[in-house]
Every structure is written in C-alpha cells, then in structure tokens.
C-alpha cells in the first residue's frame, strides 16, 4: 500500500479513535503534499486536536496508519513538528535558546545550535529579539518565535493547531499575512487546524471540512487563488464564493 501520488508527503489513512465509549475520529483520510498548505476546518471539539496528536505520534489510533514519505510512522514521535495555540516558550530561556530547543533535544550543544538558528531570525521578522526573554515580546512576536522553533524542528511537516487563536483580531490579521510571506521564502508543508473560515481560505491550497463528532472528512475543497495573496483578496468575489460554500457545509 504505497502512496498513489509521488509527491504525497504525509498520508493519513482511515484513522479511527475512541475515548472510552465516545468515538472521536471515524475513518479520517488526509493527504499533505510537499510545500502545500492544507487546513482542517471544523467546529471546536470535532476531534481535530486528537488527529494532530495521532499524526505527531503522541497518541496511537485504534485503527488506521500514518505514512510519511511512504514509511509507517504510526505512534512514532520526533518526525513532524507541532505548534500549539499557546506559544509554550520557556520563560527562563532567551528567545534564541527557546528557538534552538529542537536542535538541543537532538543532542547539539547550545553554542552550535545558537549559531545555526541565528540566521533565520531575519526571515521570521525576529531580528533584534535574539537575546530577549519571552515576557519581553508581544503575543504576536512570541508566536513568530514559536513558529520558527516549530520549523527548525521539522522543516517539511508542520502541524499548526490554531496558532493565532489567542491573538486579538488585528494582530491575527497581520500574522496571517506574515505567515504567507514567510512560507513563500522557506520551504515547508503545513497542516493547519482552525475554525476560522476566512483564515483557512486565505492561507490554504486545500481545505478539508470536518464533520461533528465522530469526525469524518465531509469535503475537500481546492482553493484556486493566486499567490502571493494579499489582504485585499478577502473582499473579492472569488474569495467570498469559497466562504459562502464553506458556510453552507458547516451550518
């Protein structure tokens, strides 16, 4: 059972999971291709985070498999990176050391890790913040640092679990624009969890609409909006057509 498309990076096959008597995931199939941005859209509590825990290897599914580049990674951690709504930066480490964390976990020295990560601060708009502590940064800046840490851990597959969920509306706007810009300059494949329809349409190449619990994939939508995308597209007819269609599916 190999992947049918050669550029499929992550293949989530027929995942089922229950907690006690409560079925949470009921046969979920998802694919992520190289350098693709894919969103999982669904209401809160639809089991999206459970799915991420399974993909990252923190949880074992009851049924189904996780394939990465054709190899079975079910229940194995350390391959894909995971970013949460909370920035989870360690308050006692400077930003550069927080960002270096994945390299240090892999066994590199603090000094070597610092040298390796320093070059990316500019790309991620964090220049000048290397030797600050997390509490000295705004919420948006902390999420940038968290994203850089996530990317440094696994450049090819990043799972983002409502990464901008705790930011205010204006900062969130800016961060979404910033994210599309950063992603155009680095190579990364992203799977995003969100319940924000506009965010999903704005950022994604494809969107999976998830049903209520027990979750299945209701529909897969291709977003054919040209890149690079700017904030202006959210008022175009095309954009609104996608939004309308998704509203229809969710409500």
């Amino acid at each position: 059972m190999n992947t049918f498309r050669s550029n499929t990076l992550l293949d989530v096959k027929n995942i089922r999971k229950s907690f006690g008597d409560i079925p949470v995931l009921d046969g979920v199939n998802i694919e992520l291709r190289r350098n693709e941005f894919v969103s999982l859209l669904g209401v809160s509590g639809s089991g999206k985070s459970t799915l991420f825990n399974i993909i990252s290897g923190l949880l074992e599914p009851d049924e189904g498999k996780i394939f990465i580049e054709g190899a079975d990674y079910t229940g194995k951690t350390g391959r894909v990176s995971y970013m949460y709504q909370k920035d989870l930066l360690l308050p006692w480490k400077k930003i550069i050391d927080n960002v270096s964390l994945p390299l240090v976990v892999r066994g590199e020295s603090k000094k070597a890790a610092r040298e390796k990560v320093a070059g990316y601060f500019k790309t991620f708009g964090l220049e000048g913040f290397e030797y600050k502590y997390p509490f000295q940064l705004s919420g948006g800046m902390r999420q940038r640092a968290a994203l850089l840490r996530t990317w440094l851990f696994s450049r090819d597959i990043m799972l983002l679990d409502e990464p901008f969920g705790s930011l205010d509306a204006i900062t969130k706007f800016k961060m979404q624009e910033w994210l599309t810009n950063v992603l155009s300059s680095i190579e990364a494949s992203v799977l995003l969890i969100t319940h924000d329809i506009e965010e999903a349409v704005f950022l994604s190449d494809r969107i999976y609409i998830m049903s209520d619990r027990p979750a299945t994939i209701k529909e897969e939508i291709k977003i054919n909006l040209a890149r690079p995308r700017s904030r202006d597209i959210v008022t175009t007819g095309e954009f609104n057509a996608y939004k309308k269609h998704i509203y229809g599916l969710l409500l």
């Binding site: 290897g57 923190l58 350390g78 995971y82 949460y84 989870l88 976990v105 892999r106």
Partner: peptide, 23 residues
C-alpha cells in the same frame, strides 16, 4: 509543569531525562 509543554517536548522526540533537565 504545563502538560502541553511536556507533549511538545515528547513530539520533538525528547526522552524523560531531557524533558526533566530542560523543562
């Protein structure tokens, strides 16, 4: 210690000793 933080460390493939020492 925040359980999400422990999960993050685990997802990075950190072992128990590393998690204890770092987090």
């Amino acid at each position: 210690v925040d359980s999400d933080l422990l999960n993050l460390m685990r997802s990075m493939g950190a072992g128990r000793v590393a998690i204890f020492r770092i987090v």
